[in-house]
Design a protein around this nucleic acid. Structure first.
Ligand code: MN
Ligand code: MN
Ligand code: ZN
Ligand code: ZN
Lengths: 151, 151
DNA sequence: CAACTTATTGAGAATAATCAGCAATAGGTG
DNA sequence: CACCTATTGCTGATTATTCTCAATAAGTTG
């Protein structure tokens, strides 16, 4: 949950014997410049990169997303659509959580400082190294409460 | 997030034109009698039912898990293993959250009253009908911090 | 900067979880 | 009991994600 630059990403990768590649650099950049509230799936990222003129194979995309999530650079979100979404993982003033309608998947972001504190404290108490901490609220939105569509 | 009995399950199903079947009743019972801290996948439930002498088809299991999660009877958990897990959804004194090691998937449950309150308040403020509210902490456990296994 | 080691990439095949279609069955209601 | 239709259990799709492997290219060393 730090702010990354190409340089700090390279430093952290090299420290573990890994490498900074153009692909990894571009993917980080894409996420850093995404409008607030955007959540990308692997497929979304694939298309974005293609349109951007920097095509990257799906294999590499999946590998990079997993890598960056495990480094704490990206957050892996399960937004109830059957596939994962990702967003940049930022600290305190930008850190947020998600309220999701399980029927239409409409998602609202909200902030709450106490939760990150709780997460940090809990991880620390158990000796875990914190990567991400997210409150997920599953609910039914006002529109879907009225709708007659079953399930 | 209520305590269900076969009768109250039937009432809630019938109210929506749905039916209480032996399969649904048994699945509810299984979850209610699970030892604290147990999380079942669809496959786990399938096997449990088979061993129990009450075999139910995988299709029905998937359908029932989804149904009960959307009713708020079960919680759908994404415990970083590539497939969903489920547990009974209970109110205040039993309500808990999960601290997950992204490397070995070891999961620790912990309680925190404030989070459920935050979730309830947030859902209410947006007019959403709350089903479940879970804090997920992704982290690396002490053992895996020491391990040399990459990723 | 040239040689060297090995992490990484891209293409395609393989896997695994979950869903869909459909005929047969069985709840709920009167 | 008779009727309507939700539900079940097969089976056969989907679809997201991972694996395999040869080719490429970071990072390091002399
Ligand atoms: Mn978000
Ligand atoms: Mn649990
Ligand atoms: Zn909705
Ligand atoms: Zn671990």
């Amino acid at each position: 949950m730090t702010i990354y630059t190409a340089a700090s990403l390279k430093a952290e990768l090299n420290e573990k014997g890994w490498r900074l590649t153009p692909q990894r650099e571009i993917i980080l950049e894409i996420f850093q410049n995404l409008p607030k509230g955007t959540h990308l799936s692997a497929e979304d990222l694939y298309n974005t990169l293609e349109e951007d003129g920097h095509p990257i194979s799906l294999s590499t995309i999946y590998r990079t997303l997993k890598l960056m999530a495990r480094m704490g650079i990206l957050r892996e979100l399960e937004l109830a659509e059957g596939h994962k979404h990702y967003e940049i993982n930022q600290p305190a003033p930008y850190h947020h959580h998600h309220l999701i309608c399980v029927k239409c998947n409409k998602t609202i972001e909200f902030k709450n400082d106490g939760i990150l504190k709780t997460g940090t404290k809990t991880a620390q108490k158990e000796g875990y190294h914190l990567l991400d901490c997210q409150l997920i609220i599953h609910a039914v939105c006002p529109t879907c409460q009225r709708s007659l569509i079953p399930l």
